[in-house]
Computed example of a mutant assay.
Amino acid sequence: MTLLCVLLLSANPNAPETWHRYEFQRIRMGIPVKISLYATDDDTAKHAAQAAFARFKQLDRILSDYDPDSELMQLCARAGSDRDIPVSQDLKVVLEHSLRVSRKTDGAFDVTVGPLVKLWRKARRKRQLPTAEALTEARAAVGYESVVLDAQSSKVRLIKPNMRLDLGGIAKGYTADQALGEMKKHGVSRALIDAGGDIVVGDPPPGKDGWRIGMAPLQKRDGPPSRFVTLKNAGIATSGDAWQFVEIDGQRYSHIIDRQTGYGLTERSSVTVIAADGITSDALASAVSVLGVERGLALIEKTCGTSALIVTLEEDQPVVHASKAFPADE
């Protein structure tokens, strides 16, 4: 765990605290997780960050679809068994939220796309499209309607054989929320957690209105931010194909899968969603990517406490579409 401390005096000259800025980074869930926080002493900062990273590690063992021993994969191994499987509180909460978003988006967000995701991971490695037969077989195992969750007993049944859940569109947001909660238990509420682009922020830095967050441009993934927003006590997530995609026979396919077609999205876009927490911003960013501009913005406008910015390419030029509540550029 790396640490950087920068002294920052409180904007209020009568305030007794002297704030310090600390930055930590570790690899969690296969990605760099960065934490920026403000505390009044080293021990408080270190203990809070350690607790946050420990929560990331704990949840990765529950929610990962890469680890065959994770709770999620153990549940999937029992798909089609006609058995109700007890699940942990964390997995239950994530599945509850996932199913709620699935119903709201008519399946544009669907954590049962795991069989299709597995095919497209192979496609990216081999740079070869899945066969029609493989797509048909995978699609037969997809459908959030075949996930039966009894929230009261915390039991889940996966009705179809070969179902495979993939929480890649929601797990990072939930985990960042949980990590921030752990930091607050250790006396740190002025914090930002960046989990591979899924960002959760708590109270603002001392003397500031919020955390200033830069949004990467659609066409240049390593370029300077194209826009800035200032947030506090919120989640912000961006979904798009800037980093994960494959080009096959001249066509670019995103890692984001449309369950209706079984294919990765082919229209270039970047979707940024702001919500009250990370689990909501993460899931809705994925859903809006699949829904497209018109239906995606309609979803956001009727979802309380959310806003979105969608950037598309038209004749190789970025076109910006924003919901009514999305913050103006700074």
Results as ranks from 00 to 15, higher is better:
residue 264 G to L: 12
residue 296 G to I: 07
residue 99 L to C: 01
residue 10 S to P: 00
residue 92 K to S: 14
residue 275 A to W: 05
residue 218 L to E: 08
residue 175 T to M: 02
residue 88 S to E: 07
residue 193 I to R: 01
residue 226 S to H: 11
residue 61 R to M: 07
residue 21 R to W: 13
residue 78 R to M: 10
residue 273 V to D: 06
residue 163 M to D: 03
residue 36 S to T: 15
residue 15 A to V: 08
residue 20 H to A: 11
residue 99 L to E: 03
residue 62 I to P: 08
residue 233 N to H: 12
residue 196 G to W: 05
residue 152 Q to M: 15
residue 228 F to N: 04
residue 89 Q to A: 14
residue 112 T to R: 02
residue 315 E to T: 14
residue 65 D to F: 14
residue 49 A to F: 06
residue 270 S to K: 03
residue 202 G to P: 05
residue 65 D to L: 12
residue 153 S to W: 02
residue 22 Y to T: 04
residue 4 L to T: 12
residue 42 D to E: 13
residue 250 G to N: 01
residue 218 L to W: 04
residue 10 S to D: 14
residue 99 L to S: 03
residue 306 T to L: 05
residue 34 K to H: 14
residue 330 E to A: 12
residue 63 L to T: 08
residue 74 Q to F: 12
residue 50 Q to E: 15
residue 215 M to I: 13
residue 65 D to P: 00
residue 240 G to H: 09
residue 99 L to H: 00
residue 94 V to G: 01
residue 251 Q to E: 15
residue 75 L to G: 06
residue 295 R to G: 07
residue 166 D to I: 05
residue 295 R to W: 00
residue 205 P to G: 07
residue 303 T to K: 05
residue 212 R to E: 14
residue 20 H to V: 00
residue 68 P to Q: 08
residue 231 L to V: 06
residue 234 A to K: 10
residue 41 D to L: 02
residue 157 R to F: 05
residue 191 A to Q: 06
residue 156 V to K: 04
residue 150 D to C: 05
residue 296 G to E: 02
residue 285 A to V: 03
residue 124 R to E: 13
residue 319 V to I: 13
residue 111 V to T: 09
residue 36 S to C: 12
residue 177 D to Y: 09
residue 17 E to K: 04
residue 165 L to S: 07
residue 34 K to W: 12
residue 6 V to P: 00
residue 194 D to K: 01
residue 63 L to F: 13
residue 115 P to G: 01
residue 282 D to P: 05
residue 202 G to Q: 03
residue 119 L to E: 08
residue 310 I to Y: 08
residue 11 A to Y: 00
residue 124 R to G: 09
residue 160 K to G: 05
residue 63 L to D: 13
residue 277 D to K: 15
residue 164 R to T: 12
residue 286 S to I: 01
residue 23 E to D: 13
residue 128 Q to P: 00
residue 57 K to N: 15
residue 173 G to D: 11
residue 75 L to T: 03
residue 155 K to W: 01
residue 97 H to T: 06
residue 25 Q to D: 10
residue 139 R to A: 12
residue 100 R to H: 12
residue 161 P to A: 01
residue 212 R to F: 03
residue 115 P to Y: 03
residue 142 V to A: 02
residue 19 W to D: 02
residue 28 R to A: 15
residue 204 P to E: 04
residue 306 T to A: 04
residue 191 A to N: 09
residue 53 F to D: 03
residue 236 I to C: 00
residue 41 D to S: 09
residue 326 F to G: 09
residue 314 E to N: 14
residue 95 L to V: 09
residue 29 M to G: 07
residue 198 D to K: 08
residue 263 Y to N: 15
residue 302 K to C: 13
residue 144 Y to L: 00
residue 300 I to Q: 01
residue 111 V to N: 00
residue 224 P to Q: 14
residue 162 N to T: 10
residue 258 D to M: 01
residue 75 L to D: 10
residue 163 M to V: 04
residue 100 R to L: 14
residue 318 P to W: 06
residue 313 L to H: 01
residue 305 G to H: 06
residue 194 D to A: 06
residue 163 M to G: 04
residue 249 D to H: 13
residue 24 F to T: 02
residue 120 W to T: 07
residue 227 R to E: 12
residue 24 F to G: 00
residue 102 S to T: 07
residue 85 I to P: 02
residue 96 E to Y: 02
residue 241 D to E: 06
residue 282 D to W: 08
residue 51 A to S: 09
residue 233 N to P: 10
residue 110 D to H: 00
residue 265 L to Y: 03
residue 32 P to I: 11
residue 29 M to D: 13
residue 308 A to W: 11
residue 307 S to K: 06
